[in-house]
């Protein structure tokens, strides 16, 4: 019993003028599902997320592809790439909501937290002033803010970092959106707060049955939070699949290297392994695999001459010329000592 699809990204390409930033990215989101979009800075993951809601910075534009927002029983889904600004404004916050890294940037410092949430309700759902204010307090309570009735009347600067992010999440969830896009939602927060916010996101997602796209560079965040992940490198998807399968048996050398580099490895007595070299600069893509120059398994001719296609098999997809043989040899798995 497959849950219905709510978002369908197809062949999305993004460029800054002549410089390609994201190339041919496709993925699907189903209701209740959490997908992680993983990559380093410069991978194009944030651009992809921003493009979904038409929030690309000036000078950056979608050059190809579609972002379809589906609704059960709606025969002609809305394409957010071609949608006008008024349609987008109506979709944002109501059907697709977004949570950013810096909660302070998402809050108006001169308006109380309660009013800001109430405003979303009044604008999108047409609620009256009093019911919106009451609903705002309920929402603050639902995201774990103590004494929500009193805190609703406070300004954002009186909130701690974690509380602010909770308030931002309350605002994002106010209209019970079908899709929540969270762009590095915990990167600016303390470790103990990070764990709480991730728990909150997972809980709210289960309660509302919405889909979540979690954009992050941190595989430690992905592990307990998401069902599937898509790994991006230099503007392309290099691997996608279920979190358990990908973590236990990565099919792309980059995914394998990222897993080995995670600092959390140290907690299991494994030394995090650095990935040597740097991400290629955008606009100068190598002819073959973009990761080949840093890849321990790259072979001349096989990897660095012709573009490598994304190959799908079942729910997994991978863009690597040597994936099959490397997996056969168990070259990409972490050394034994077996994970539980």
């Amino acid at each position: 019993m497959t849950a219905e699809q709510v978002l369908e990204v197809d062949g999305l390409s993004i460029a800054a003028g002549p410089v390609p930033l994201v190339h041919d990215v496709s993925f699907r989101l189903r209701a209740g599902e959490a997908l992680a979009l993983v990559g380093e800075s410069g991978s194009g993951k944030s651009m992809t997320a921003l493009a979904l809601l038409g929030l690309l910075p000036r000078g950056v534009a979608v050059t190809a592809g579609s972002v379809r927002l589906l609704e059960p029983g709606d025969p002609s889904p809305l394409d957010l790439v071609t949608a006008g600004s008024r349609t987008l404004a109506d979709v944002r916050g109501r059907r697709v909501a977004m949570v950013f890294q810096d909660p302070m940037a998402s809050l108006n410092p001169s308006i109380t937290v309660g009013e800001q949430i109430a405003e979303v309700l009044r604008r999108h759902l047409g609620m009256g002033r009093a019911p919106a204010a009451r609903q705002a307090v309920d929402l603050l309570g639902a995201v774990g803010i103590k004494e929500p009735g009193r805190r609703a009347g406070d300004h954002p600067h009186t909130f701690s970092g974690g509380m602010r992010q909770r308030a931002v999440i309350a605002m994002a969830l106010a209209c019970e959106p079908a899709v929540l896009i969270a762009d590095e939602p915990t990167t600016a927060l303390d470790v103990t707060i990070q764990a709480q916010i991730l728990d909150l996101l997972v809980r709210m997602q289960d309660e509302l049955g919405m889909a979540m796209l979690l954009v992050t560079h941190d595989l430690g965040v992905v592990a307990g939070t998401c069902h599937r992940l898509a790994v991006m490198y230099a503007g392309r998807l290099v691997e996608a699949g279920a979190v358990g399968e990908v973590f236990d048996d990565p099919a792309h050398p980059y995914t394998s290297a990222l897993l080995a580099a995670a600092p959390e490895n140290a907690m299991r007595g494994r030394k995090p392994q650095a990935i040597l070299g740097t991400v290629p600069a955008p606009g100068e893509p190598p002819p073959g695999c973009a990761f080949s120059s840093r890849c321990a398994h790259a072979l001349p001719d096989a990897c660095d001459t012709a573009p490598i296609e994304l190959v799908r098999s079942g729910s997994r997809s991978v863009r690597c010329a040597r994936s099959a043989e490397l997996r056969e040899l168990q070259e990409l798995r972490e050394p034994a000592e077996a994970t539980p």
């Binding site: 019993m1 764990a195 595989l219 430690g220 592990a223 307990g224 069902h227 973590f247 907690m267």
Partner: peptide, 17 residues
């Protein structure tokens, strides 16, 4: 608390389906 808050790479979320 701090030690417990370090994310685990081996944690898994239950399937939504």
């Amino acid at each position: 608390e701090l030690v417990a808050a370090v994310p685990s790479l081996t944690a898994r979320r239950g399937s939504h389906e």
